[in-house]
Amino acid sequence: MKTILRLIMSVLFTSYLTTAFCQSEMVPIKGSVYTPLYGRDSMQVTISDFEMDVYPVTNKEFLQFVKKYPKWQRSKVKRLFADNNYLINWKSDTELSSGQSLNAPVTNVSWFVANDYCKCLGKRLPTVDEWEYVAMADQDIADARTKASYNEYILSWYEKPKTFNNEIGSTFKNYWNVYDLHGLVWEWTSDFNSVLVSGESRKDVDTDTNLFCGSAAIGATDLMNYAAFMRYAIRGSLKAKYSMKNLGFRCVKDISE
């Protein structure tokens, strides 16, 4: 009896959730096979169809989230799940500072909260491979990685200060109709800890079978893709409870028939 009640309640609640949150818009991404910077055994990765948020999660959306789930408020969050930088720039548990825009991407959030946020909306964080797959597009084509202008655009981002204060949608709309993958903030991925780069870039080219099972797969496929190197470097430097000023997230969803 109790369980049935609970079930009903949870179903009701889930549907309530999806309507209550101003759900961010999603667009379909058509899957395919591609070669990421760090591949698997065959270097090729297969991506299934999925949907991705058009924009990174904003301060506004996150504000609603922490109001709904007080356990993720700054003063209540468990230290296991977020370090001391968690939402450090907010004025209080449920208020932004004056300098922060509601439409700017939320940053200073840990992997755990990002993961939970997506889960609570019936979504999930993208995998590294999915994120990279969508992010290799520019305005016109799905794989722009060999275009000089594509690389230049991303590299130039490192020279723009405080882009985390910019509002969502301030960069280009890519081939998949997704905004802000480059030029705004870094984004969490579900399996960011699959990046075994140690940060010692010269060491990572070794095949040290003593260190990792099957470490032979550690080897970059494109030495000119500096932008991707940096993304993998940042992932390699992260721990799940880290919160950073330049790190936000967005969600994806499997396409259910």
């Binding site: 140690s198 940060g199 010692e200 060491k203 940042i234 390699g236 430097s237 721990k239 880290y242 950073m244």
Partner: peptide, 15 residues
């Protein structure tokens, strides 16, 4: 020492 300290000092922004 390995990497001249590089591995031990790999640090993310804000850390």
């Amino acid at each position: 020492g390995p990497g001249g300290g590089a591995t031990s000092s790999f640090v993310a922004p804000g850390h």
